[in-house]
Design a protein around this nucleic acid. Structure first.
Lengths: 168, 168
DNA sequence: GCCCTAACGATAATGATTCTTGATTCCCGG
DNA sequence: CCGGGAATCAAGAATCATTATCGTTAGGGC
């Protein structure tokens, strides 16, 4: 391999290395590079996008290794995975994020914006308690049309029954 | 075919028939039977469970037809689909449900309980407006351990980094 | 540096969902 | 009620994301 020594340099990588060591998992170059791609992006990346970024960097890392590394990153708590209804998962690192943030997803362009409503945590705990559950986490997603798509003239269309209020 | 005439008899089937007619789609026996299975259950059914119920009724309806019918039912607004992280979708009819109800999912036994917090609708609208979005719908899921699993001694375990508060 | 173990990459397998095909059913007008 | 064109059906092949397999290669404790 050529110039692979300074590839992974995001400021949080040491946390991932610590996690790997604490759990007896080898700290491999591939894992560091994959983690660096995720840590260096502010987007919600799909595995395909991670793969593309690796290719752009000139790295030749197998897709299976990406999946395996994402699994470890999610377990470590450094990364969260999401399914926004696209048929595949997206990943985001949790640095610089407020705990318990939520997502606003454009139903047209699939762009994702984050927001934070602290009361959701309280609602989670109240609801869980009311039903005897021990709360672990929650997921709130709001779907709608983003400003760009609205400006472009895209419209929300409801093609269901004309009078849903009667039936619900 | 033998005794297929009174198979589909749930009280809301006429709404589905109306939707099909309004959209120029043929009202077929298979669609009625599949809809009847979903309308007759209070559970959150997977396609596999729907298939099993059809087999139990002695119906021989292809899996592709189930998928196509579910697609129409969701578009009609009579049924909602959910992905609770099982790797496949679950479907529930919306009769007798309050508009905008949410779900509490057991992380151990995957059982699903419904709840309703009307303020979520307000939060949806406020958040969307604050970001220039036109709100369409939302999805709130709370994950945790249900009373049965708690009583059985199951525990939530966090195997991530020891001190996540520092990193988040 | 050595060696054992575990990760790597390539590829095959899996599981949920969608598409294709030829046969059947629906539905509209007569 | 009958006929015919269009759309749906069942079965299975194809697809897509993800996971497992396997021979090879690389971490890391000694």
């Amino acid at each position: 391999m050529a110039a692979t020594e300074t590839v992974a340099n995001s400021p949080y990588l040491h946390l991932f290395r610590r996690y790997l060591r604490q759990h007896g998992l080898p700290v491999t170059l591939q894992r560091e590079i994959v983690a660096d791609v995720v840590f260096s992006s502010t987007e919600h990346l799909s595995v395909e996008e991670i793969e593309a970024e690796l290719k752009k960097r000139g790295e030749r890392i197998g897709k299976a290794t990406i999946y395996r590394t994402m699994e470890i990153l999610v377990r470590s708590g450094l990364v969260a995975d999401h399914d926004f209804g696209d048929g595949f998962k997206r990943y985001e690192h949790l640095f610089g994020q407020q705990r318990g943030h939520q997502h606003l997803v454009c139903t047209n362009c699939r762009n994702v914006v984050e927001f934070r409503r602290p009361e959701i945590q309280r609602i989670q705990d109240e609801v869980a308690r009311a039903h005897g559950f021990l709360p672990a986490r929650h997921k709130l997603e709001v779907y709608g049309l983003c400003p760009d798509c609205r400006a472009a003239g895209v419209e929300l269309k409801y093609e269901g029954l004309a009078c849903p209020a009667l039936t619900l």
